[in-house]
């Protein structure tokens, strides 16, 4: 419930963590910790403990624009799932199911974790950003 409350003020939520991040010169540690737990529970089987994925089946989460680039596209992969897309010119044939059962905050945490683990380094994803994408999808 606290998660929902956090997501209710998108403008504020978007600005505040950004400022905080700059101050701590990094990513919120709590988000990374929660993200890791979600990753272990829902993502690890396919994407593996090292985020390297599985040849030809499940794509790696490292060195890819899908993870490090546009956040909206990345959030949509969690919301809608993904199949039939080549990544870095490689086909991956398994289905990525929708993870729509995750809350905005859980999605934000796991994406922040993925963007800052396995050798990745990219800005955090906020619950407000997830909420905004989900809201836009419903329109």
């Amino acid at each position: 419930m606290a998660l929902l409350a956090l997501g209710s003020g998108p403008v504020l939520a978007q600005k505040k963590p950004a400022a905080k991040m700059a101050a701590t010169a990094g990513i919120p540690a709590a988000s990374l910790l929660k993200g890791k737990s979600i990753y272990t529970q829902y993502c690890l089987t396919c994407h593996q403990a090292d985020g390297g994925g599985v040849d030809g089946l499940n794509p790696p989460l490292t060195k890819t624009d899908y993870v490090l680039g546009d956040k909206t596209r990345l959030i949509n992969v969690l919301v809608n799932g993904l199949q039939g897309v080549d990544i870095n010119d490689e086909p991956y044939n398994n289905v990525m199911p929708s993870q729509d059962f995750l809350t905005d905050q859980q999605m934000a945490d796991v994406l922040t974790y993925v963007r800052n683990n396995f050798g990745n380094k990219a800005s955090a994803v906020t619950a407000a950003e997830v909420k905004a994408v989900r809201t836009a999808n419903k329109k």
Binding site: Y42, G81, N94, V95, M96, P97, S98, F101
Partner: peptide, 13 residues
Amino acid sequence: SNSCQVKDRQKGS
């Protein structure tokens, strides 16, 4: 498909 779920590989489907 993995197990012919309504939504393939979807939790609880």
